[in-house]
Design a binder for these strands. Structure first.
Lengths: 208, 208
DNA sequence: CAAAAATGAATGATTATTCATTCATTTTAT
DNA sequence: ATAAAATGAATGAATAATCATTCATTTTTG
């Protein structure tokens, strides 16, 4: 009886590892062939496993894709919260760090963006995707809005509208992601970063 | 010989009308079921025609989708150029009008955006989509950049970077489109418009 | 050894595409 | 002008390929 727990958890760990490997394979497949071009046979081959493996671990393809999106969202969330935690306790510094994170090569990179946009392309037709994405949106908009409000309060920017500024910031990164995806040759990370910096300086001139 | 032309053009006109009707049906299908959920049978039924009709008029599904994207791009282009032409000969007024157009209910509406994002979701995997979208991006970025440069020159804004401002503007609309798609309940058109207005006022304070 | 994990061949549903046929319209010939 | 011939648009049943899912069997693990 005492022995059962470690046995079960070993198996459970192996199972979790397999699921994780399959999700990784799914992300690679979507990055390479798109959502429409990704078959379960592709995913299995990418993971070096056999035909029926996805159905064994995820029951259905829809479920695999849902869990893949959840994984991506969790991954982003960890990065976001970590950036927030790692930055000095100054709201403007935190805003700058978050924007830089969104434009960093780790996130703002064509392969990764292709996966996000693949899911966004289906967002209106798959309620699960919609729910996950809308919650993300709300969470990060809320955090950014609060930071902006803090900068306003601390800097005494009476006539700056927090909502307008936070909306501008979050929409800018999404827009830069689209242009990185659509025209990577022309996309200029430094120029994008500069645009964000100038926006923040113009909005909060006394805080730099 | 003189008689042949009108006859041919009647047939040609009918053919063009059919193709157009099928493209309309395709857009409705994508708006309702997504790119992945749209079958040729759906399109034919939506158009009130029979099974083989798409292959007759467009040869392949890929080609139908390509021509559908081209149609959407042309439709947007007409609106864009018309807005440019209809606005008083002042670069800032033109910029404001273009931004307002992008956020207008006619364009910034979930059904339409779902179709655009469906194509963007495949942009990395279908070279044809990529080409069409990248060319659009370049064209409009160029026009917006030139307008911004004019405002800078006319207003003597020595320390404003035209590239940074135009990048900010175009990325903002794309970002607002994403949030309109992802979380339509929370999306606030007026707030978005206000954000853009404030950005322009902050950037060009002496020109309002 | 028993249970769980993994395999990969078989199944059945879906779907793009083809094609023989029908039908309406246009052209040609008398 | 009228009938015959030709065109090409439209149909919808048949085809062939793709793919998610199932399951009987084998392999691995505890």
């Amino acid at each position: 009886m005492a022995a059962r727990a470690p046995h079960l958890s070993r198996r459970a760990a192996a199972k979790a590892a397999r699921r994780r490997a399959l999700i990784d394979a799914t992300i690679r497949c979507i990055a390479a062939k798109g959502l429409g071009g990704t078959t379960l046979a592709d995913v299995a081959k990418q993971a070096g496993l056999s035909q029926g493996i996805v159905n064994l671990h995820f029951r259905t393809k829809d479920n695999l894709l849902k869990e893949t999106l959840e994984f991506l969202a969790a991954e982003y969330d960890e990065r976001f919260m970590q950036t927030l935690a790692d930055t000095p306790d100054d709201p403007l510094a935190k805003l700058e760090a978050l924007m830089a994170m969104d434009l960093s090569p780790a996130l703002c990179e064509r392969r990764k963006l292709a996966v996000w946009f693949a899911f966004w392309g289906e967002v209106k037709f798959v309620p699960t995707y919609q729910k996950i994405c809308a919650e993300r949106d709300r969470k990060y908009d809320g955090i950014v809005h609060d930071l902006v409000q803090q900068v306003i309060d601390e800097g005494g920017y009476r006539d700056v509208d927090a909502r307008a500024v936070s909306d501008s910031l979050t929409s800018m990164t999404d827009g830069f992601w689209l242009s990185c995806l659509v025209d990577p040759k022309r996309f200029d990370r430094d120029a994008a970063q500069r645009a964000v910096d100038r926006f923040l300086r113009a909005t909060f001139p006394a805080s730099h």
